[in-house]
Computed example of a mutant assay.
Amino acid sequence: VSVGVRVDLPSELRRRLLQSATDAVRARLLSRAPPHLFEEIQSAIAAIAVGVDREMSSVRDFEGAKRAIAMLKATGQLNEATLLGFARQRRYEETAAALAALSGSTVEVIRPLMQSLRDDGLLVPCKAAQLSWETTTAVLESRFATGAMKPADLARAQGHYAHMTPENARRTLRFWQVRAS
């Protein structure tokens, strides 16, 4: 608690400290926070709570989704519209498997990107697959059981996505695949 309320503690370290803290420690931290840090700590706790509610954090079985996506690919039915449908329906396993297939990657590479609290990694396979921003947004939001990303976060992600080239995205994705194997 005494470390969490230090003024000189960077926000990122405070957020990581709060992630590993129990609810009791978080409550004590809020009660002892100076007024200028209260809102920052409260926002970090709220973001962590949303992360806990995300459906992606549960254990998943991708085998059925991999088979279904392989069948769609074999029959020529796997495309961006199919992925968009899976993402909008929040069919997590199918979304991850379809993104892996469309980006030329594997579920083993896509899965940690889908589970990450950060969205910038997931932009790479979306750009490698040359997805529209509409589909990319649906993929980003499919990581959550309910709700959507904050407009500011979406705008930031859209800026990153617009500046990324498909060639660089494919190169990065290949690097991640080699590193994963």
Rank of each mutant, 00 (worst) to 15 (best):
A180Q: 15
L154Q: 07
K66P: 00
R6M: 06
I41T: 14
A101C: 09
S116D: 15
R156E: 11
A180N: 11
A145P: 07
E12W: 12
S103P: 09
T165I: 07
M71Q: 02
F175D: 09
E93N: 03
L131N: 01
P166V: 07
L17C: 04
F38N: 05
R170K: 12
R156L: 08
A138T: 03
G121C: 07
R54D: 14
W176N: 05
F144R: 15
V124W: 03
E12G: 02
T75M: 01
V107A: 09
E93A: 14
E39V: 08
R15K: 10
F144D: 14
P10Q: 04
C126Q: 07
L154I: 11
A87I: 15
N79F: 01
D8P: 01
A101S: 13
T136K: 11
A129H: 02
T95D: 11
G159D: 09
R32H: 14
V50L: 10
G4H: 00
R28I: 06
Y92I: 15
E63R: 14
A97L: 14
A33P: 08
I45S: 04
L37Y: 03
L102T: 04
A65L: 09
A155E: 12
R143V: 05
E134A: 15
P34S: 13
G4K: 02
V7K: 06
L122T: 04
G104S: 06
A97C: 07
F144I: 12
V50Y: 04
C126R: 03
L17A: 09
A81W: 01
M114V: 03
K66M: 11
A70N: 02
A21G: 09
R91P: 00
R32Q: 15
R32A: 15
A98M: 01
S11C: 06
A65E: 07
V3W: 14
G121E: 06
A44W: 01
T135D: 01
A129G: 07
E63D: 13
L30P: 02
R67T: 11
L17V: 05
R179D: 13
T172I: 06
A96D: 01
A49K: 12
R67L: 14
Q89T: 14
A128I: 02
A27M: 04
E63C: 09
W176I: 02
S105F: 01
D23C: 02
A128S: 09
L113I: 05
E39M: 11
T95A: 06
A47P: 00
A27W: 01
A97P: 00
G51N: 13
S2H: 08
Y92M: 12
E141H: 12
E40T: 13
A152H: 02
G104Y: 02
T95K: 12
R170D: 05
D119M: 13
A98K: 00
Q158D: 03
P10R: 03
F38A: 13
F175H: 06
L9H: 08
G104E: 01
E39D: 13
H163Q: 10
L123H: 15
R111M: 12
C126H: 10
I48Y: 03
R15S: 12
E108R: 11
G147Y: 04
G4W: 07
L30R: 10
M71G: 00
E80C: 07
D8Q: 10
T22L: 13
A24N: 08
A155H: 03
E12L: 14
M56L: 13
Q77T: 01
W176Q: 03
A128W: 05
